[in-house]
Amino acid sequence: MKIVITDGATLSGGGVSLERFSRYGEVCAYDLTAPKQLAERLADAEVLLCNKTPVPAEIFDKCPKLRYIGECATGYNNIDIAAAKAHGVTVCNAGVYSTNAVAQHTFALILHHYSCVAAYDAAVRDGVWKRAKTFSVMPYPMEELSGKILAVVGLGSIGRKVAAIGAAFGMHVIAATRTTPRDCPYDLVSVDEAFARADVLTLHTPLTEQTAHMVNRRRLETMKPTALLVNTARGGLINEDDLAWALQNGMIAGAALDVLTEEPMGDTPLYGLENCTITPHVAWTPLETRQRLLSIVEDNLRLYLAGTPQNVIC
């Protein structure tokens, strides 16, 4: 059996190895795969393991031996699922591997905004504290999280973890979710109400036709001018032109993003805005998180080969 890994550079290194997959067949691992290279590399492969490689509908016609795709991520919008299903190709994703890490990074971004750690560290390094006449120097206003309204949009495993952390900080948590959870301890609201009421609004939904550009000018205009928008989910949830307009015109106080519509970063209007913090899609990258990811991907493949697949998308 031939196993092709199309974007190994996004998965391996830093204490993580792809060698584990060699026990299941012949492995051909590529650092990255351009769209025009995909069909040739998958021509005689039965298994594809990918992270962000786009897998469009035509690939399934060109690669008739392909029987299984292991998505090395939670989101699977890079794969044409309808085409995979039509061709009898099983697709499994990695489920909840990144819950703790993404929730942690979400609050790192929130705390960065309200506690001003980076600004104060830079000030101390510039000698501000050495030159001070008082024991405390406070040019950057800080705020408590306690009492603020945390609006969580999407109440899957990551959203629930973020909500729990927010509650532990003393925040008042409200949630907007497509499905109504049982015994939810938080106030359930519509997406529009979440935007309007939030002091901090954080996105934890998949990118679908229904959620694309859910952050847009209409909703941004309803937000508090003191609000913070956080996105550690998918860049396509945000209309970046509309968000840049809102940030430049004081419609909201700030944004903190780990994802963008185009990755690596392209020509986004958000680049360089003082009230927009951007990290390069790193919420999922702690060592323990990536080790867990590959363990789940391996288990998915092993159970598929055993005839009992798990985490099945189609």
Rank of each mutant, 00 (worst) to 15 (best):
D267E: 15
C276L: 10
R234M: 13
Y24G: 09
C314P: 10
T289N: 15
S98Y: 02
C276M: 11
H281Q: 13
G159R: 03
G8T: 06
E193P: 07
V297R: 07
T134W: 12
G13M: 06
L273H: 08
I238S: 12
A84S: 10
L301S: 07
D44Q: 14
A82R: 12
C92A: 06
D299N: 00
Q310E: 13
L18W: 06
L243A: 09
V189C: 05
S157L: 02
E58M: 00
V297D: 00
R182V: 01
A253Q: 10
G236Q: 06
G166F: 03
C28V: 15
K36C: 14
A253F: 11
Y271N: 13
T90Y: 09
W245M: 09
T205F: 07
I278M: 15
A164K: 04
C116E: 07
K161T: 13
G25Q: 00
K65P: 04
N249D: 10
V259Y: 01
D192N: 12
G272M: 05
R125K: 15
P185Y: 01
S98T: 08
V215R: 04
S98F: 05
P56Y: 12
D299H: 02
R302S: 15
E209R: 15
E58G: 06
V152L: 02
I313R: 01
N311A: 11
R218E: 15
P264G: 08
H112G: 11
A233Q: 02
M251N: 12
K224D: 14
Y68R: 07
E193S: 12
A86Q: 14
H172M: 14
K36E: 15
K133Y: 14
D187P: 09
R20G: 12
A255I: 06
P181C: 02
E298I: 02
A108Y: 01
L287N: 13
V137I: 15
K62E: 13
L207M: 02
I5K: 03
D183Q: 15
G75M: 11
L18K: 01
K161D: 11
L201H: 06
R292N: 14
